[in-house]
Structures are given as C-alpha cells and as structure tokens.
Design a protein around this nucleic acid. Structure first.
Length: 494
RNA sequence: GGUCGCGUGGCCGAGCGGUUAGGCAGAGGUCUGCAAAACCUUGUACAGCGGUUCAAAUCCGCUCGCGACCUCCA
C-alpha cells in the first residue's frame, strides 16, 4: 500500500485504531444510503461526499475496494407509522416504484454534480425480500425474535442479557434498558418491551408495498435491509460500515444486533460516522425554514445565501472540515471557501507552466515535506482540512516561484516533476475536486483570448490606456478577469 | 431526564501535554500607467471557574451554552 499506516476513528471502540483489512489489499465498505421518498437533503450530501473521499483515498492507497451503498425503498417509517415511500407515492400520485425511480434519479444527478464516484454495488431493499425473510427466520430460530399477530419483533432484552453487546455502539446502557421495563410496561403495544423493534411487519389491507412471508403478508423492518445487503455482498464480516451519526441509534445498533442474532457474527470491524451539517448554527430543518437544497445552493435562489456557489466550491467547503465534526454552513464561510478554492485552482494552473533548469535543490525538502504531509494527514483518519492546508502552503510556494521571490531553479527537475504530478492528482483523485475554471474553454476560445490579449498588449505598449482599459472592462463584464504580470497578461474566469 | 459529542481570534476551521495550523476578512508594504492578482510583514484565540503537571487549547472536576440521538410531553 502507498504511504504509511492508515488510522481511523472507530465509533465502536471510540478510539483511533490502525486500519487492518480482513483480507490484505482488499476493503469492503458499506454505507447507509438515502431513503428515496423526496429530494436529497444537503446533509446527506455531506455524508456521501465524506465517504466518497474516504473511498477515493482507499483506492489511492492501492486497496481494491468494494463500496456498497444501498437505496432504501421500503420499510423506513415516519413517526406516524406511514412508510416514507408510500407517503411519497400518495403525495405525488405515483406508483411507489415511480417514486423510488424519480428520487433515485435525482439523488444520482446530485451525486454526479458533486463528483462522487459511483459505488461498486447499489442494492435496493425491495430487491432483497427473500434474503430478509431468511434472516428473520434465522433470528427466530436462534431465539432472538418472536411473532405477534403476524409481525416479528427482535427481543432486545434477551439479546442484551445473552450477548452483552447491545448498546455498545451507541453507548446505551443495558441496565437502564432493563430497569425501564417496569416503568414502560403500560405503553407497550404488541412488543414485549419498548426497546424491541420490528423485523417483519404485518401490512394493513390498504398498504401499498407488501410481500408474502411465513408470518403474514407484510414488509421488512427498516434496520433489516442493511444487515442483509451488507453481508450478502461483503461477507458476514467486513471492514468498514459508515453512515451519518444520527443513524447510530437505533439503526446501526439494531443492525449489529440482527447480525449477531442471526449468525453470531458482528458485521463490521470499523464503524465510521459522519457528523451533521448545520446551517447558521442550527439544525437544518424543513419545518422551520432553516434549510437549503443543493440546487438552491448552486443557483443562489435562497435567502440564506448571497449568491450561487459552484458544486466544486461546495465540495471544497465540505472538505475543509473534518468529516466527524459538525460543520456550520454560512454564507461567509462559503464565500471564504470559494475564494480559497479558486486560489488553489490558479496555483495548479501556474504550476503547470513552471519550468526549472534544476541548478539547485535547496527548495526540494520543503516541497517534499508538504507532499508527504498531505498523505500523512489523510492517513490520520482522513484529515482533509489539514491536507488542504498543505495545498495552500504549496500554492504559496508556486506563486513565489512564478513571482521570482523564490528561485524556481532551486527546485530540482525531479522534484518539480513530482510536484506537477502529485499535487493535481491529489486534488482531483483524492479530494475529488475538478478544476472548474478550465471548464467551458476550448481551443477556439483559448485562441481568441490569446488574440485579444495581444491586441491589448500592443495598446498598452502605445500607452493607449483607453483602449487597454476598455478591453479589460468589457472582458470583466463577461466574467473574465485579466491579470497583468511582468511577463505579459493572463486571464481566468471570475 | 438519559447517551454521545462540541464550545478556538471578525468569520470558517485544524489541533490528542511543550512547536506558526490553514483559508477568508483587516492593517502596512513591494510590483503596476491604473486596477486586479501575486508576494512580503503584521495584530486579534482557545466559554467560565477550579485542579493535576516543570509545562494545558490539549488531561480531570464543576458551571454555562450548543448539537445529534433517545425518552418525556404534546
């Protein structure tokens, strides 16, 4: 593997641990995907951009990664007990599967815009009903499930008593769970205990999505699909399980319980959780208006932002905080990230034009130190904000070489070649940031710009400032900025 | 009320016991016909109160504030 040992913060042990895959050179990673009943939430995007970067870095290190991210299309219920997909179908007057398709398409489109790599497998819950029924049966056979009126529940108390791991991930204390029994007996429904959860639910007559099972015509519980699909594609035990930290309890806790209940085997060695995206210091919430969609963020069509931000600027913004920290989305913060990202893009462009005669090498150590440090930072639980700070250090150097305040000839040819290769590669392949400033240009427009700048240059040489400034102002109106340097002018998009 | 976590300079955000984080914004300067960009220099921190330590933003305790999940209520 490229670089040094990788360390990850494991939510299960609450410790930073050296990452050792089960099979050397291979990684199995499962991430809980979206429930596709409405447009994707920006907070989801942060989670998936986070895991995309993790996926990219694992690939960059040389691992062969199988990345499974599911699509939940059944079983995830709302507070009032209605299935989220069914509710979407009712509201939009569509077939449930039309709802699923519609919002899956939307989700994929946004993921593409954020330049996330597609997962290796993207399974859907409804495509795995037989496997889910099978797991329910295994759980019953092992004594951790019980049937009531056609529904099957997971017996958390028995599980907690026998396996001693329930609550391990979320920090819920089993004793509390047990003492709650007496107090909460009064508001139990069919369940033996309030903390028990449904793994199979009998469907009401008017329920839209339902399947035959040994217990009833019904549908699987929400937590079950991830237990089934992760282990189906990655094996009974795999390396990384990820998701938003709002899923820790009950979803992930119950997932672990189901897997252990079914085959006495905990699913994942490392649990990674992304933290929440806040807006203006508060939880994003549709009901109180404190929310913004990805589209609104791109177009600027929202009272929360002063302008639109490009998808890569938003991605860069997301990577400037650690995936496990809450991050606060504000207009000021976005403006700052946008400018910073532009600075890096400009630095890349200048880097490509640098040449050295390699007469010295006094600069080499600094450059190499930063390049190595970038990877060390990523090896330290994917510390993208720190790695990005190394990029800024390198950009300052690149600008100094260009400007002449540092001597480019103090960089050896080998080191410059390495910088030219590794820095853009890191930005594009690991951080997943495309250079937008070069998008939309072609040989023709490059040629035209060259011509215009030459005309302006000759005007400047005649000290015809009126003409020279008119050209600059007109280009400025087209969102093109002209920069005059010592050796001629260059241009970029605003 | 419970569990987990967080509170860093004008803003965002790293930091895991001793070292300049970094970006944006601000101030001064260099370059420039002007401008922009770039470069150089630079100020402003670790919620509060105690404690441990030669040394604390970093560890411990309490207080206040914030977030997620759960619970309760509705």
């Amino acid at each position: 593997m490229k670089g040094k040992a990788l360390y990850v913060q494991n939510s299960l042990t609450r410790k930073k641990e050296e990452f050792t895959p089960i099979t050397e050179g291979f990684v199995g990673m499962y991430v809980c995907g979206p429930t596709v009943y409405s447009d994707v939430h920006l907070g989801n995007c942060r989670t998936f951009v986070g895991f995309d970067t993790i996926y990219r870095y694992l690939l960059y290190k040389g691992y062969k990664v199988r990345y499974v991210r599911n699509i939940t299309d059944v079983g995830h219920l709302l507070d009032d007990g209605e299935d989220r997909i069914s509710k979407g179908a009712r509201l939009d007057k569509l077939e449930p599967m039309e709802v699923v398709q519609k919002y899956s398409n939307g989700f994929h489109a946004i993921m593409d815009i954020f330049n996330t790599k597609k997962p290796s497998i993207e399974p859907r819950a409804t495509g795995h009903i037989p496997e889910q029924i099978e797991m329910v049966q295994q759980i019953i056979d092992n004594g951790f499930g019980y049937e009531k009126n056609g529904s099957v529940y997971f017996d958390t108390i028995k599980f907690a008593n026998e396996k001693k791991v329930y609550g391990e991930l979320s920090g819920r204390i089993i004793d509390d769970l047990l003492t709650e029994t007496r107090d909460n007996l009064k508001n139990q429904s069919e369940k033996n205990h309030p903390s028990d959860f449904a793994i199979w639910m009998k469907a009401a007559d008017d329920h839209l999505m339902k399947w035959n099972s040994p217990w009833s015509v019904g549908f699987p519980g929400w937590h079950l699909e991830c237990s089934v699909m992760s282990t189906k594609y990655l094996g009974k035990r795999f390396d990384i399980h990820g998701g938003g930290n709002d899923l820790k309890f009950p979803h992930h806790e119950n997932e672990i319980a189901q897997n252990i209940g079914a085959c006495d085997c905990a699913p994942s060695n490392y649990w990674l959780h992304t933290n929440m995206l806040l807006m203006n210091g508060k939880k994003m919430s549709k009901s109180d208006g404190n929310t913004i969609s990805p589209e609104e963020l791109f177009t600027g069509d929202s009272t929360h932002v002063s302008k639109g931000y490009s998808p890569m600027a938003v991605r860069f913004f997301m990577l400037q905080s650690h995936y496990s920290s809450t991050m606060d989305l504000t207009d000021d913060a976005l403006l700052a990230s946008e400018k910073g990202f532009k600075r890096i893009q400009e630095g890349e462009k200048i880097l490509a034009s640098l040449e050295t005669n390699g007469s010295g090498n006094s600069e080499d150590a600094d450059i190499i130190k930063n390049l190595d440090a970038m990877l060390d930072d990523m090896d330290d639980d994917f510390n993208t904000p720190k790695a990005i700070s190394r990029l800024f250090e390198l950009v300052t150097k690149i600008n100094s070489y260009k400007q002449g305040s540092l001597d480019i000839n103090s960089v050896s040819k080998d080191t410059l070649a390495r910088l030219k290769k590794e820095m853009p590669e890191f930005i594009l392949e690991v951080l997943g940031l495309k250079n937008e400033s070069q998008e939309g240009t072609s040989d023709v427009s490059e040629g035209l710009m060259q011509l215009i700048l030459e005309l302006r240059q000759s005007a400047r040489e005649r000290k015809d400032w009126d003409t020279s400034d008119k050209i600059r102002d007109s280009l400025n109106a087209l969102e093109i900025v002209v920069k005059d340097g010592k050796d001629g002018s260059n241009w970029s998009f605003k």
